[in-house]
Amino acid sequence: MPTIASKPSGAKRGRPGHDQDSVLSIAVQVFNKHGYDATSMGTLADNLGISKSAIYHHVPSKGDLLDKALDEALIPLEALGEDPRATMGTAAERLEFVLRSTIRVLVERQPYVTLLLRLRGNTEIERRALERRRAVDRRLADLVVGAQQEGSLRADIDPRTTTRLMFGTINSLVEWYRPDGPSTPQQVEDNAIAMMLDGLRA
C-alpha cells in the first residue's frame, strides 16, 4: 500500500499516535465528508487530534494527501489491465473478470474510490487522476465492443450506452454498500454481474 513518505526500516515518521497510513485514512474520511476543496489543514489537524503545525510532521501538503489517496484507488484499478485474465481468453471472459475485479476494488477500498468519483478537476492533481480514470474506463468500453464483435454480447444495444450503464451500476456501490450490511461482498459481486451481463448475452 502506498505511503506518504518512505520510512527507514523499523521507524515511523511523525508524531506518536499516527503513522502515514492512519493519517491518510482519516484524511480521506474528512475529504469525503466535507469535500476536498472545503477541507483545510486545520480541519485535518482537528480530526487527527494534533495541532495545525504538527500535521506537517506527517505530510507536506493537503495536495500530497490527495495524490496518495487517489493512488489507493487508481493503482489497483490500473493493475487489472496487466492481469493475464484481462488479456487472455474471449472478450466476454475478460469483460467479466474486469467487472468482478473492479467491484472488488471498490468494496475493499470504498473510501478511496468514493473520493475518486467525487473529483471535480479543480487542481492539476485531480485532472491527472481523472485522466487515469478515463483510461481505465476506455479499457472496459473496448472489452464491451470486443464481446459484441465476437458474438458473446447482444449487438443491438449501443456499446457506449452499455458501458455507461455498467459504470453507473458499479459506481453506485459507493453510495449504498456498507461492509456491515446484509449483503456479503461476494453476493454483491454475483448480483451485479448477473444484472449487468445476463440480459446482454447473445
Rank of each mutant, 00 (worst) to 15 (best):
D19S: 05
Q20A: 12
G121S: 10
G42N: 07
E131R: 13
K68D: 04
S40Y: 04
R85A: 15
F97L: 09
A91N: 11
T123P: 05
A73D: 09
A54F: 02
T90W: 03
I26S: 10
I125N: 00
M88Y: 07
K52T: 10
L48F: 14
H57R: 10
L74V: 09
E108Y: 06
D71M: 02
E126T: 01
T39G: 04
L44Y: 06
L80V: 12
E131H: 08
V113N: 00
F97V: 09
R134Y: 14
I26L: 12
V59G: 04
D71G: 04
V23Q: 03
I125W: 00
N32D: 11
V30G: 14
Q110V: 00
G42Y: 06
D46S: 06
L44I: 07
D37R: 07
Y36N: 01
I26K: 14
V136A: 09
E131V: 10
I26R: 14
G89M: 15
A135P: 02
R138N: 08
L74G: 10
P76G: 11
R132H: 05
N122G: 15
I50K: 07
R132W: 02
L106N: 01
H57Y: 11
I75D: 12
V98W: 04
R132P: 02
V30Y: 12
R128F: 05
V136I: 13
V30E: 15
Y36E: 09
A69T: 02
L116Y: 00
P76L: 12
P111Y: 11
K52L: 04
K68V: 12
L116H: 00
Y112P: 02
K62C: 07
S101A: 15
F31C: 01
H34G: 02
T87C: 10
E93D: 15
D21Q: 14
Q20S: 14
V98T: 12
E124G: 07
D67T: 07
R133M: 08
V30W: 11
P84T: 08
F97E: 08
S40A: 10
L115V: 04
L140F: 11
R100L: 09
R132Y: 01
G63F: 02
L66A: 06
R134A: 15
S25Y: 10
M88V: 11
L106Y: 00
L80F: 05
G35H: 01
D67C: 06
A45H: 06
L66V: 07
A38G: 04
K68C: 12
Q20H: 12
L95D: 05
H57I: 03
H58C: 05
R132D: 01
S101V: 04
A86P: 12
I55T: 09
G42Q: 08
S22M: 07
L65R: 12
L130G: 01
V105R: 05
D64C: 07
A135H: 06
L117E: 00
E72H: 06
A38M: 09
M88H: 11
A73C: 13
E82R: 15
L24F: 08
L74H: 10
K52R: 15
L74Y: 09
S40T: 15
E93G: 12
E72Q: 14
L65S: 11
A54R: 02
A73M: 12
I26D: 06
